[in-house]
């Protein structure tokens, strides 16, 4: 167990994104989206000024896995169609890709697959805010990235312990740190001024029964996470499938056919990684 109070841990987590070890694009994005006075237009201009970022954002929204009907050809078009919170989430999502590849290989695939599956389930359930659920899925494990960056040795130990003891990384984290990646991710989501529902999904995706204001959304990301590990796509820190919350599973009321379709989309989504970053 690391010797640090939860307050100090939170301070370190909130500070880490500003450190020179973090790529400058991500540092800038964090600053821009954490600014309460920033407008959608200004975020659009910020993206447009960076050709690499522009191309990544347009590629992700135009990918088959994203499934937006019709081609979105410009950043200004994307910002109008998708709105502030989705654009903010996509920006973080595309800019942590390399960091994730270098720290926990497979975590980005896990995150992307979770986003795609979450969006599909949300649509099946008729939720209006399915784009927000996509973003929550994309960012649900961002706390893991921060924990590895800040405590690489301890996190490695937690991962080893998970594998040896046959527990999930979530459980191992709680033994090694004063908290877990879900709570840490929610601190970042708060810092970046995401809406309360999204923060709650990230915070409770391992304990969906604790969510009050976004219980269905949280159940969706909870199940998507489990389905990805079940199918063996990506890597999220341990080789085991976590137990599904029966309450969450029942609340979603998905048929076998629904589940098969979700698995199919998840698998397809793995291919957009290449589209996004290798071309």
């Amino acid at each position: 167990m690391i010797n640090i109070s939860i307050r100090d841990l939170r301070r370190r987590v909130e500070g880490i994104i500003g450190l020179p070890t973090i790529p400058s694009t991500l540092r800038q994005i964090s600053r821009v989206i954490g600014d309460p006075s920033i407008s959608l237009k200004e975020i659009g201009e910020f993206i447009s000024n960076d050709p690499a970022l522009t191309s990544k954002v347009l590629k992700i929204v135009n990918s088959a896995a994203y499934g937006f009907p019709g081609r979105i050809s410009s950043v200004s078009h994307a910002t109008v169609l998708l709105g502030l919170n989705v654009i903010k989430g996509l920006l973080i999502g595309v800019s942590v890709f390399e960091l994730m590849q270098n720290t926990m290989c497979g975590l980005w695939e896990h995150s992307l697959g979770c986003a795609v599956a979450s969006r599909l389930i949300a649509k099946k359930k008729g939720l209006e805010g399915y784009e927000d659920v996509y973003v929550a899925g994309l960012l649900h494990d961002i706390g893991k990235l921060v924990l590895i960056l800040e405590f690489p040795k301890e996190y490695e130990q937690a991962m080893e312990e998970a594998e040896i003891k046959g527990i999930t990384i979530f459980e191992a984290e709680e033994e090694h740190f004063v908290t877990n990646h879900a709570v840490i991710g929610s601190w970042l989501a708060e810092k970046w001024l995401f809406p309360y529902n999204m923060i709650e999904v990230i915070r409770y995706h391992h304990k969906p029964y604790l969510s009050k204001s976004a219980s269905i959304e949280t159940a969706i990301v909870h199940l998507s996470d489990i389905l990805l590990r079940a199918e063996g796509l990506g890597f999220a820190g341990d080789p085991f499938v976590p137990v599904v919350s029966p309450v969450a599973f029942e609340a979603l009321h998905l048929s076998k056919m629904d589940l098969r379709e979700i698995l199919e989309e998840m698998r397809d989504s793995m291919e957009i990684k290449e589209e996004l970053f290798l071309s």
């Binding site: 063996g232 589940l259 199919e264």
Partner: peptide, 25 residues
């Protein structure tokens, strides 16, 4: 590998169902 992933949870509620769907897939 699928069996290994479900090694500790196969008997928990709904996990057998999820495993079956994934196996078929």
């Amino acid at each position: 590998q699928l069996d290994r992933r479900f090694r500790f949870v196969g008997n928990r509620p709904y996990m057998d169902l999820l495993k079956e769907v994934v196996r078929e897939h």
